[in-house]
């Protein structure tokens, strides 16, 4: 299986390539430099693996939530790379990718992801599963005090748990563990893209579109 994946939903610019069983990736802290860095990094990974774009089984990108401009950079890149060769596209939730990462490193099976959405709001999603983390509720943008979480032993992931720690304090009894540091990484897109390929959930290039969650912008 050969999959190219990239994430530009945060300050970080992250690219990964699955070739056989091996994932090669590069992540750089690069505020406002995503557009400058993406193609050179992709070129490097493909070149080092001796792969051409047409050999890919899929292109994965994080479709949001996250920085609006970053999401569009990833989506238009996915569209442009995929359209001429009809390469299937896996549009993957940023929140799900973070849950997947935590699942792989900490073996957590119930994960609540909260990313800072600014304007006193968070992007919120909960995931559960073994192997592949799947959503247990629709993703939302909401105020921290509007969060509803059922059950216990959740692993909390994402920057918002720190930024809004006071407002989210009421959830403390339901949490087993908190990780506020982790950022989305392109390598965590790969298993989710593989899952989408298996489940026939990939889309064509025109449907490589961002999901902003916040739709009221003016």
């Amino acid at each position: 299986m050969k999959i190219l994946a990239f994430d530009t939903s945060t300050q970080q610019c992250s690219v990964a390539l699955l070739c056989g069983n091996e994932i090669k990736d590069i992540s750089l802290d690069a505020p406002n430099q995503h557009a400058e860095l993406l193609l050179p990094l992709i070129h490097r990974l493909l070149h080092e693996a001796g792969l051409s774009l047409t050999q890919l089984n899929a292109i994965g990108f994080s479709r949001g939530p996250g920085s609006f401009t970053g999401l569009r950079i990833a989506a238009s890149l996915a569209q442009g790379l995929a359209c001429a060769h009809d390469i299937p596209v896996a549009a993957i939730s940023t929140l799900q990718m973070m849950a997947q990462a935590t699942h792989l490193t900490q073996h957590a099976e119930r994960i609540a992801v909260a990313m800072d959405a600014r304007m006193q709001q968070i992007y919120w999603g909960t995931f559960a599963g073994t192997g592949i983390m799947l959503p247990t509720c629709p993703e939302q943008v909401l105020s921290p005090n509007e969060v509803i979480l059922a059950g216990k032993d959740w692993t909390a992931v994402g920057t918002a748990w720190q930024v809004y720690s006071d407002s989210l304090l009421f959830l403390q009894p339901q949490l087993a563990h908190i990780d506020t540091k982790s950022l989305p990484q392109a390598r965590n897109l790969i298993p989710l893209a593989q899952y989408q390929i298996e489940q026939k959930l990939t889309v064509s290039a025109e449907n490589a579109l961002p999901i902003y969650l916040r739709d009221k912008v003016c």
Binding site: L53, I73, S76, L77, A78, Q79, G80, L81, C83, H85
Partner: peptide, 10 residues
């Protein structure tokens, strides 16, 4: 720009 450059690359 990103779409055009990605298409050119592909």
């Amino acid at each position: 720009a990103v779409f055009a450059r990605a298409l050119g690359f592909s």
